[in-house]
Amino acid sequence: MSTALSLCGRNLVGFLSIACFNLADPQILLGFLSVASIDFLKGGAVLLIEMDKYKKTREIGYGGFGNVYQGCNRVTNENVTLKELWFPDEKEGVPSVVIKEISLLKEMEHSNIVRLLEVVSAVNENSVYLVYEDMECDLQKFMNDCPKIAKDPDFIKRFLQQILCGLAYYHSHNILHQDLKPQNMWIDRFDYILKLADFGWARAFGGSFKKIGYLDVTHWYKAPELLRCQQFSTPVDVWSVGCIFAEMVTRRPLFAEFSEVHQLLKIFSILGTPTWPEGTTSHLFANCYSKDLAAAVPGLVTLEPAGIDLLSKMLCINPSGRITAHDALKHAYFDNIEFEV
């Protein structure tokens, strides 16, 4: 870690001064912090640790709360993803949502979730950088680049299982992802490990994140209750996974409309319009019937019957009737998955 700690007067405060702390290695942290202390900082000293450690190589996305960069560690040459979190003019210090989210994300350790390596904080800038491990390829790209492998039913099954494993882990920690889409899933091309990424921070901030060079697909994977701005919870993520599952099989997005209204109509045209008992103003999709999915979406004929069954359970319009990620993993579809040690 390049820690150039320098003493300088108040007049230099405006300079870029970044404190960099390695979450994984308390030893490094200790070494640096024994120099930085409150008495030291009180005397007008500034933590000046250059962000030398990482080099931003290119911007890969932007959102309402900062940009996302691809970067690399100058020392190890390891690629990373840098997500900037920007909190302009924060009179109350570091916003509590940021604090809460980072402390939660830090605890996320799962082989199917992209790891948060460290948090690089800009002391006199109102932002922090989250440093994630980087993988070369996302599911979208993978489906385009390696159609043969991506089409393989065993691979689809495997990817789906990994998505659900990561998701069940999120949900077991009471975290909603809310922005699941193929562009948010990284694939390691060597061992075909899929990891859920989360650079959107949609949960914490309600803002959307757009990846440069991609269509705005934010609503393609949105559950009906989200499109209708109703109360929502963990089932919204399962819906998104269902859409992605269908997309892996048919090679095209299941519901891809221009606007959120069209999106909802499209969903109803394929799955059937929910009916409400007369006289009720309930906005729950209580009475909805499901059309035969395989008949409604011709591309799904290649999918085995157990897969169709699982898919229709994931795409249940009524969120309370939708299968959970945890239960989905126990579905018969995964019974015959092949394991290679």
Binding site: E107, S111, D152, Q161, Y169, E340
Partner: peptide, 26 residues
């Protein structure tokens, strides 16, 4: 199909996947 490393967590018993060892160390 390419070999899939078992330590990367595609385990049949999914219930065992929720508390990986790293967390405990953490």
């Amino acid at each position: 199909l390419p070999a899939n490393h078992s330590q990367h967590g595609i385990a049949r018993d999914t219930s065992s996947m929720y508390i990986p060892e790293e967390i405990q160390i953490c």
